[in-house]
Write a protein that binds this DNA or RNA. Sequence first.
DNA 1: CTTATGAACGGTACTCAGTACCGCACGGTG
DNA 2: CACCGTGCGGTACTGAGTACCGTTCATAAG
Lengths: 226, 226
Amino acid sequence: MSKPAARIRLADAAFVLFDERGYERTTVDDIAERAGVGRTTFFRHYRSKEAVIFPDHDRLLELIRDRLATSSESTALVAVSDAVRLVLLHYIDEGDLARRRYALTSKVSALRDREIASVARYQRLFREFIADWMGDPTEAASLRAELMAAAVVAAHNHVLRRWLRGESADPVAEVDEAMREVLALFPTPQSPGGRDDDGTTLVAFRTSQDLDALLPSLRRLIEDNP
Amino acid sequence: MSKPAARIRLADAAFVLFDERGYERTTVDDIAERAGVGRTTFFRHYRSKEAVIFPDHDRLLELIRDRLATSSESTALVAVSDAVRLVLLHYIDEGDLARRRYALTSKVSALRDREIASVARYQRLFREFIADWMGDPTEAASLRAELMAAAVVAAHNHVLRRWLRGESADPVAEVDEAMREVLALFPTPQSPGGRDDDGTTLVAFRTSQDLDALLPSLRRLIEDNP
DNA sequence: CTTATGAACGGTACTCAGTACCGCACGGTG
DNA sequence: CACCGTGCGGTACTGAGTACCGTTCATAAG
């Protein structure tokens, strides 16, 4: 018990020293020394000085990949929401650690950049999954997959950052709500009927006119665009 | 004319050497030597080895900021589209240089990460502008601004990458079209009527049913939610 | 008990990016 | 001529990251 696996001690030492002296003014030697290990050992456990404060993104990415893989065509969007919730929960489980990391990434641009790069990998995963799910290889579908993936991770990050700043009491409910909003932006081709796309399409709008006053124009639109 | 401003020679040398030996296997000394200048001079012109291949993001950010600043409330979305087009045109003006950079960022993860970090700065700029424009300080509006900014830069990057890969003959037309699609995703609060929010609200959906078959339910919904 | 094996660690030495500082040459201006 | 700002080169340093080697120690095999 006096040896909590050097890896942990290194991370602890790093956080303490980064808090005390700041990130740039802390050397890897400092961290290793405080953890009571050699410098070599540090690089055995963490690829770089930056990596020591970040969660295991590779493992998280695998988690997402797994969740997405276990979905049929009709549950694809549920899988996306689930995967997003999974990531959020991972951060929440970290608790204080996640908040200390947030404080660091807010101050040190090198760390912020690295975090952003990681987020891009999640976005790529979602983009590829969504594009696959759409099946449609056209340019329009490709763009829509890109937009959707961007919106999905933006929603997650928005809620996550709110929670990190202590602005959210129930981040899970918030992320679910945010995901609903994201998915609502994109027309879902979940036509349960049978053959698709020969029904009625309504566009969304808000108006101060009465529904009855609009009906004639609506009917005309529908008739003119078969 | 034998001295095309060391800065240019350094960039040229860097691209040539990166092509020849790859990025990691090229040292700053190599670049400086090939450019016929001292190592110190390299760092006088470029903050880092990575910076030598990237365009002047600070200047581009200023360009965007300026374009966005010269917009009224009613032309905000036009300003966003213009700003996006501005960035795209900047890359197109670079021509072959932009494509060589793309080849590098596709292979070297360190460069890709840096590019992604730059993109995030553009996204932040758009997010702040859009949030300002919305005026609404609620959480819902904040999320919508985030989503919109993410979609805007995703659309730009999508078209840009297509052009970089030689898949687009008319990227400007494509980005305009993509921006229209993005803005169409978000209900525009351009209610030209007068006082707002005591009329009829329609939700967006696509169905295979006839409009007439839906009307009774619609009316019931409207009556039940005044 | 002895030996082989493999994993985890520490130490040394190296490359290279990035910074700090100093001194030199040049061109214009008084 | 003297003065001064600018651009450049050289030297020396810090610190991240890599390569390599030797040591320790626990466990399994003999």
